[in-house]
Design a protein around this nucleic acid. Structure first.
Lengths: 311, 311
DNA sequence: TTGAAAGCGATACCAG
DNA sequence: CTGGTATCGCTTTCAA
């Protein structure tokens, strides 16, 4: 790899001038500028980001923390993030935390060690150790002190319950995600409001995790616990699909015997038959908007609202 | 962030000694070692990877090039990669190329600018510009000069065709992925062999892309072109699911009127009803094994076979 | 066994 | 406008 010194030598100027020409900072005569540009082209030079980062104490990298990249919600978030940060000249260090707090802490340290410009996190607990880097939460709210982007969970919960209420719901079971994930509770609040307004009774069924592997087990338990369940508001599409499958395995028809409402933005839901009703979460937009807010903060622009809603 | 200087001062030794203690390289008296360790703990010091990388001309980062992270095959690959590189102390820079050669070239440059230790790529064209970095292809073979990991496509094609042949196939259509993707052709060869052995006639249907968005259009075209199709060997699960959906939309039953064989390792296929037959590709393992080979090469271990099969 | 000092490749201050 | 030089934080000779 060529360095700025090679360029300086070839262009017959000092490294300082090359640097100025490169960054269009400070004074450079047109003549020098042209010589430098020619040399850069000739040598196929591109600046070493590591050296830049060392001096500036800030790289063009952004950390992205995801709970589980195998959950199809998050690749979409990642895609939104990637599109926006690329637009702004940043790249991503991917941190797939797999709901493991140790991995999460390790990643946050790595981010610091690599002078990331900022961090985007869709992991619940992460706010604590991120003190020093600009960061934005995705799809989660931890406190109103932090920047975050999320879909409107309360309304989502409301919509899910309304969908259920409309079609002779019978026994209703509402799945609740891990207690620690606050938007799961907000969603629940939305659902509960509607169910109570309609004088429907309901049962809660807690799941510990949003991970794919445990969904199968949850679905089984749910039917053991509530054999007469007629309507289920699932905590995400993975659970919803798994529940439908379990229902079919038990000889129940969908939606006549059991109706299921999913919750996520999983492109596969659309391909399912019989169709799964689902409350869309704008995964891509959450990522894109979160990245936008983060980049603005990094570049020093004021971001008015700390908590942003999507759609 | 603390620096090695702070540690040196607190421990009462030179920075050189701290560095040696940190890396367990060269001579350090036990006494010094202990003083350094105590200081490190006291200050909560961790080395700046950027400075390291600048000196070593090599970072602890690995570039990962993916054609489309929204295609559920690739998050699984990424997960396998991530698990292995983490094990070996590396982190990932994510490059989602979206089948765009410009983005790809940009990412390869970024990787170089950040002194990545190596690159893993599931993108067809990428080998050219990667000359100087160790790299391994995932799920693709470009030439026998490059390291690569892939599933056995020929056998996969064989299996798909056998599954079709077993159940009164009627008119068979074999979807072929983009011509540029060589393993798509290898798969086809496997299928063709079996179909011809069984004296079955078949039609080819080419698709331009593995992208999600175009699948819908392909499915529509397929039925327009081959209205009497009875068996379809789809080029991946996204196409398979989309085709099933299109079939249903057209009032056909599955699998009695139309049978579809998918090809990928998409966890959602399993949740489908009516069940989609699918030839599993070990996405996670491809990622994991590719990362293993790359890490071994980076660490200077000999890797015997250039082309590795998975499962 | 230790520490002083020379880089790694870029930026930015400051004198000219 | 330009160039010399200190600097970012760390590693690695090399001499002591």
């Amino acid at each position: 790899m060529r360095t700025i010194k090679d360029v300086a030598k070839l262009a017959g100027v000092s490294v300082a001038t090359v640097s100025r020409a490169l960054n269009k900072s400070g004074y450079v005569s047109e003549k020098s500028q042209l010589k430098v540009e020619a040399a850069i082209k000739e040598l196929d030079f591109y600046p070493n980001e590591v050296a830049r980062s060392l001096f500036q104490k800030k790289s063009k990298l952004i950390g992205l923390l995801l709970p589980d990249i195998a959950n199809p919600f998050f690749p979409l978030v990642a895609k939104g993030v990637e599109d926006k940060v690329n637009e702004m000249g940043y790249k991503l260090i991917l941190g797939n935390v797999q709901e493991n707090p140790l991995k999460e802490a390790e990643y946050i340290r790595t981010f610091a060690q690599n002078n990331v410009a900022g961090v985007l996190s869709a992991v619940e607990s992460s706010s604590k150790d991120l003190k020093n880097m600009p960061f934005v939460m995705l799809d989660r709210i931890t406190s109103d002190k932090e920047y975050s982007v999320h879909s409107d969970d309360y309304q989502g919960g409301t919509l899910a319950a309304m969908a259920v209420s409309e079609r002779s719901p019978g026994q209703v079971v509402v799945m609740v995600g891990p207690r620690s994930v606050s938007n799961s509770l907000v969603r629940l609040a939305g659902s509960v409001k509607v169910l109570e307004e309609n004088n429907l009774t309901y049962q809660l069924f807690e799941t510990e995790s949003y991970q794919f592997d445990s969904a199968q087990e949850s679905a089984h338990q749910l039917f053991e616990l509530f054999p007469n369940v007629k309507s289920i508001i699932a905590s995400n599409d993975i659970h919803a699909l798994t529940i439908m499958r379990e229902a079919i395995r038990r000889g129940l028809s969908i939606p006549s015997d059991v109706q299921v409402i999913g919750y996520d933005d999983n492109p596969y839901s659309k391909l399912m038959y019989p169709s799964l009703s689902t409350i869309a979460q704008p995964a891509y937009q959450i990522g894109y908007k979160g990245a936008e807010i983060l980049c603005n903060r990094i570049e020093g622009l004021k971001v008015k609202e700390k908590i942003s809603n999507c759609q």
